[in-house]
Amino acid sequence: MGAEPMQSDLGLYDYLPWPGRPKITWPGGKKLAVWIAPNIEFYEYDPPNNPTRTPWGRPNPDVLQYSHRDYGNRAGWQRMMAAMDRAGFRGSVSLNVALCDHHPEIIRACADRGWEFFSHGIYNTRYVYNMTVDQERRIIRDAFDTVRKHTGQELAGWLSPALSNNLWTMDILAEAGIQYTCDMFHDDQPMPVKVRSGKLISMPYSLEMNDVIVYNSQKVTPRHYGEIIRRQFDQLYRESDDSGMVMCIPLHPYLVGQPHRIDAFAEAIDYIAGHDGVWQATGREIAEAYHASGAYDAMSAAAARHAQGDR
């Protein structure tokens, strides 16, 4: 590093203001696509250090933080899954793919429900910081192979482990056949990402709906999280009268699956599921509909026109 100057903007997407965009229409005439993305993660007991980020706040083993996350894989996932079953939501699993090896029982329960798996790296304690392009390509290949082997699914989506990224990450994801990335938070609609080859969509994920941000950064109570989810939904649902939008709820079973949190969340997604205009989708389904409806091409063209001065 060091020698490479930092850039002020990677130019991964063109600016395209909300008013005047091409209209998005979701399958079946639904208004709002809602997808739920549980981060089913494995954090290592004794991970190696990365010069850019040390996995744990305390020296290995950080028993308290390690075990707190492990709660999700022993207890929390079942509560979260029961709430989603009740509301008729399939998950799009943001998966640390090594979890296929560690806890195949969890993978099977998700797969049996028709949940999608997308990649969240190998472990949440291994970051892509300081990797070479070749090393990062091997991570991507590992993720494809592991998910295919354990679930038969071909990876469509990617959320970098612990949201670590390199300058070239989007290019090599697209090159490997990834259809959507969850690492960018700039829009409520899927948007094309400018990559060297292939077609990559930035899928609306969310920081502000993400339980880890809500509970741990914003210090929001569980019941208020339920309120936040409803308000986000109500607003997007109204606005989707004009053009289809996307709402994502990113979760962590070790957090939302705690006994003092699960009911407020469950009630909020029941509320969402009670609306006729909701499309309960997975990330892959949204990406496919975005292409099939012509929205990808229309948005790309609109963004290009805007960039060329038709403002």
């Binding site: 083993p61 090896d101 560690h102």
Partner: peptide, 10 residues
């Protein structure tokens, strides 16, 4: 990933 196996990594 020496501890990538069934069950826990310890």
């Amino acid at each position: 990933y020496p501890a990538r196996r069934y069950g826990m990594d310890h």
